[in-house]
Amino acid sequence: MADTIVSGMAGRYATALFELADEAGAIDSVKTDLDRLSALIAESADLARLVKSPVFTADVQLSAMTAILEKAGIGGLAGNFVKLVAQNRRLFALPQMIVAFTDLVAAKRGETTAQVTVAQPLSDAHLAELKDTLAQKTGKDVRLDVSVDPSILGGLIVKLGSRMVDASLKTKLNSIRHAMKEVR
């Protein structure tokens, strides 16, 4: 975990939660709860607005988040953490806190995440092959964060740490177009 850097206010909150969860032996349950909350925020425009908007008072945010956490079955450290964040008027940074916490958990487990962009969804066999190839290259367990972007036409773009491999058809076609312009 020493090589994982989380910075800023969101990083400080995430580090504090991570250390508490580690001491309590509850890293997995906290991560599961935060992942569930993150999915809820992504699915609901109203919840995303509640989290991001400075218009709502701390009391309104706290009571709304308490009800949402209760309904979602999120309690314990994760629930108390979200309530504290709402009380402190830092709910706008909750998504970044969740990402930073996930990064700390991955570092502790020796995992890394690769952002993969594809033109169309990959089959399970292709995902497994890509995951295995990246694991062999990095020597770590690799988690894939796959997004679909039809504008790349074909191929894929892989971002792993500070490295990026762009094997998209769109980039190859652009390279050919630029080469053809130079020939004229």
Results as ranks from 00 to 15, higher is better:
S7V: 07
L127P: 01
E23A: 09
L84N: 14
Q115H: 14
V60A: 11
K52M: 09
R49G: 13
H178N: 12
D22Y: 10
N88L: 03
T112V: 14
F81G: 04
A14K: 04
T4W: 00
A135H: 03
A10M: 04
A14F: 02
I152F: 14
T15W: 11
V99E: 06
V51C: 10
H126T: 07
V99L: 05
R12D: 01
S175I: 06
A106F: 05
M65D: 05
R177E: 15
R184D: 06
Q120A: 11
V148H: 11
G75P: 00
A106H: 10
R184N: 07
V148L: 10
D141H: 12
I68D: 04
D141Q: 15
A39M: 05
A128T: 10
R184S: 10
A21H: 02
I68L: 09
A42M: 07
V183Q: 12
R36I: 04
L50T: 07
D35C: 08
E111D: 12
K137H: 12
K172F: 10
S162Q: 03
V142G: 11
G73W: 00
V142W: 12
D141M: 00
A67I: 01
D35E: 15
P121N: 09
V30S: 03
I98D: 01
M1W: 07
S162G: 04
L34V: 13
K83Q: 08
D22F: 12
Q61F: 00
V105D: 08
G110V: 10
A48M: 10
L84V: 03
A24T: 02
D35P: 11
L40S: 14
L160Y: 10
T138R: 03
E111Y: 03
T32R: 13
S147E: 15
L122R: 13
V118C: 06
Q136P: 02
I157W: 09
K159E: 12
Q96G: 09
D46K: 11
G75C: 00
V142F: 12
L169P: 12
F81K: 03
I98G: 02
I27H: 01
Q120Y: 05
A125M: 04
R89Y: 05
G76I: 05
